[in-house]
């Protein structure tokens, strides 16, 4: 999977990136929403782990923009405080799911795999629907 981790906590980013990398995933890191958005435009990402609270452009705004520029990329919101309401709002805005910090690496990978599966299915479905009828 090609993963982007957007979080202002550098140590957290490093630790999670290390764990994902040894499990064979490609991990990109961003410290702000703006930075993450720029990378989402350039890279063809599978899953984005996006923190809710970010300096400058916050998580919700970044999510909105990211879904606009890269609709197929699945986004999992990360939140330090267990306010389900904000996370639910994010899901309504197009996020795949949310996770509360701290979380275990396996739990995170399961969630990302689900997101990746959904992305693949969506992509396939898009291919089917965009194939012209007379070509079949």
């Amino acid at each position: 999977m090609k993963i982007l981790l957007v979080d202002d906590e550098e140590l957290f980013r490093i630790a999670v990136a290390k764990q994902l990398a040894v499990r064979g995933h490609t991990v990109h890191e961003a410290g702000t929403g703006e930075e993450g958005l720029a990378m989402a435009c350039d890279l063809s990402l599978d899953v984005v782990l996006l923190d809710m609270r970010l300096p400058g452009m916050n998580g919700t705004a970044t999510l909105k923009e990211m879904k606009r520029v890269s609709p197929l990329t699945e986004i999992i919101m990360l939140t330090g405080h267990a306010t389900v309401k904000a996370a639910m709002e994010a899901i309504n805005m197009g996020a795949f799911d949310y996770m509360t910090k701290p979380m275990g690496i396996n739990e995170l990978i399961y969630k990302m795999e689900d997101a990746y599966t959904k992305k693949r299915l969506t992509k396939q479905q898009l291919k089917v629907t965009t194939t012209p009828v007379n070509n079949r």
């Binding site: 906590e9 140590l11 957290f12 630790a15 999670v16 290390k18 764990q19 040894v22 609270r53 939140t79 330090g80 405080h81 267990a82 306010t83 509360t100 910090k101 701290p102 979380m103 275990g104 690496i105």
Partner: peptide
């Protein structure tokens, strides 16, 4: 409490993630 939860959960997330890293380092498989 809302702010405090965020502030405490962030270091906790670093702790758990880094613990995971150490566990990976000690895992011969990796």
């Amino acid at each position: 409490a809302t702010g405090v939860a965020h502030e405490i959960n962030n270091p906790l997330a670093i702790i758990t993630s880094t613990t995971g890293v150490v566990r990976d380092m000690l895992n011969p498989e990796f």
